[in-house]
């Protein structure tokens, strides 16, 4: 406690710089180590085809993760994204099955997701409910809506656009990967180069100070919750195209992976630090890990355990270093 006084123990700036750097680059090292490990121990890992597989496997997570990155940067969290994805996919399919003219089902579905995002944002920013509680409730609402709309059945009528984006190819490249890359790119440009992006970082770094500097922090928090909802919705729309059907629990299980990937990349849970490049690294770590474990024919029942342990280690790292932001 007493050591906290500025006068006494500030670690030498070299050490601080080193700690900061090692925190910043730890995910990159993790990725490289995993990559090398699987390249050496598996013949089938390091092939062009398998690399494509990895990209394909993380694409939905990437779309969702873009929005989660925004949310985490403001020091909030969204636990409803995967259920929103399911819900959005269900809505798009539901109205397609009801013969609504295209592309309206997709637009209506994305608007519905945005609306749920607004509720998340208002609950968090204006009503002051912790975001993890609001979004936890929202996950039930979104999930409940999916069940209610489908009555538990699978819908096979999908918007044609969803089919193309989910499983089509252009010049041999999957549309899915292109959509993911574009989403990440747009997210990156917004965060890095716009005033709004700066406000997102500053709101997360110190919400009180941001408010004092005239930033509409409640508006920013609401906006990022909406962005997370819409990217989740986009993942849902593309996702049903990939699966070929809309089921009432299609993407529910992606929540841990989506948040995990963002945190693995090094975006701080305490806000203000991180970004899309970090999220890309995190996605690749998760993708390489999942894919690699398949390749080296590890006991299939241990896959989840190993992934969980790696996620925990990354979280510990994230918190140990982010928690020591200043002395």
């Amino acid at each position: 406690m007493a050591q906290k006084s500025a006068e006494t123990t500030k670690p030498p700036s070299k050490l601080r710089a080193f700690l900061a750097k090692s925190r910043e680059y730890a995910p990159v090292w993790t990725l490289l180590v995993l990559f090398l490990f699987f390249s050496v121990y598996s013949d089938s890992f390091l092939t062009l085809e398998n690399m494509g597989n990895i990209l394909n496997q993380v694409s939905l997570l990437a779309i969702m993760g873009t929005g989660i990155t925004f949310v985490l940067l403001t020091a909030q969290i969204d636990l409803s994204v995967s259920y929103m994805a399911t819900f959005t996919g269900v809505v798009a399919a539901y109205y397609t099955a009801a013969h609504m003219a295209q592309p309206w089902p997709i637009l209506v579905a994305l608007l519905a997701a945005a609306f749920l995002g607004v509720i998340n944002g208002v609950g968090t920013a204006w009503l002051g409910i912790p975001s993890f509680m609001v979004t936890l409730a929202m996950s039930l609402i979104a999930s409940g809506l999916s069940l209610w709309l489908t009555h538990g059945r699978i819908i096979f009528d999908l918007p044609p656009l969803a089919n193309i984006l989910g499983s089509g190819r252009i010049f041999g490249i999957k549309w899915l990967v292109i959509v993911a890359a574009l989403t990440l790119l747009v997210g990156h440009l917004i965060l890095r180069y716009t005033r709004f992006g700066r406000y997102v970082y500053m709101t997360g770094a110190n919400p009180k100070a941001a408010e004092l500097a005239g930033v509409n922090t409640k508006g920013i928090v609401t906006a990022v919750m909406v962005i997370a909802a819409v990217t989740a919705g986009l993942a849902g729309v593309v996702g049903i195209g990939r699966l070929g059907s809309a089921t009432p629990t299609a993407f529910d299980g992606m929540l841990i992976d989506a948040i995990g990937a963002v945190v693995l990349g090094g975006t701080s849970l305490f806000g203000g630090i991180g970004g899309i490049p970090q999220t890309v690294i995190g996605l690749l770590i998760l993708g390489v890990l999942r894919n690699g474990l398949d390749q080296i024919s590890v006991d299939i029942y241990m896959k989840t355990l190993i992934t969980g342990i790696i996620l925990l280690v990354a979280l510990v790292f994230n918190i140990v270093f982010a928690g020591k932001k200043e002395g």
Partner: peptide, 13 residues
């Protein structure tokens, strides 16, 4: 300018 410096500044920025 608020009475507490920490609440007015972004220390890591």
């Amino acid at each position: 300018v608020p009475p507490s410096r920490r609440s007015g500044l972004f220390l890591e920025k």
